[in-house]
Amino acid sequence: AKSWCAMQAAPLFLVSFVDEESSGNRSSWPDRKENQRQQEQPRASQHEIQLHRFAMGRESEKALLETASSCLDNFELLSAMRVLAAGDADMRSLSEDCECLRNGYLRAYNAKNTEKDLHIETILGVLEMVKELWSSQSLGADTRVRLAVMVGEMLKHSPVSKKKVDAILNRPLLGSQSQRFGKRASHKCLSS
């Protein structure tokens, strides 16, 4: 079972049923009332269910961490998150950090042009990390393409359509519909 779980990156649990009488929680000389109550209860309630999680093998943990490290260097945040979630409590906490990173990235990516400035810290953070990773000699060509696309995504700016530009340029000036538009105003009018 352990080797199958290692292959599938699945946690392995053992379920055990502990007899309450043998667990030492009860007095060895139960009074008559307690005895009677025990006899009235169905048999299943006299067992306590315990779950034990098998610790991962050293090699499995190392393999997961190596994969997660590689995913993080390639900015594959979703994969890093999933790989780390298969590990122990410490690794699950790291998986949550990766989820935060991914959500922050997606929020910056999906932000409208007018709201990009709200995510400037994330955008600059991504650009700075890409710059840092870019200088690494070991970076493969496919990773460089991926990082370049990410920079493009962070800096993308939806072009404004010609129709929209025309509408803005030809928009009537404020107050142009008024009969007094373009006429000299009296001193009284100006002061009011």
Partner: peptide, 22 residues
């Protein structure tokens, strides 16, 4: 910030890896 979380996560993973290797 996003950058510090990224760096911290990467560092923690590497520290765990080196602890396992030693």
């Amino acid at each position: 910030s996003w950058k510090s979380t990224y760096q911290k996560t990467r560092r923690k993973i590497r520290n765990k890896l080196s602890a396992l290797s030693s």
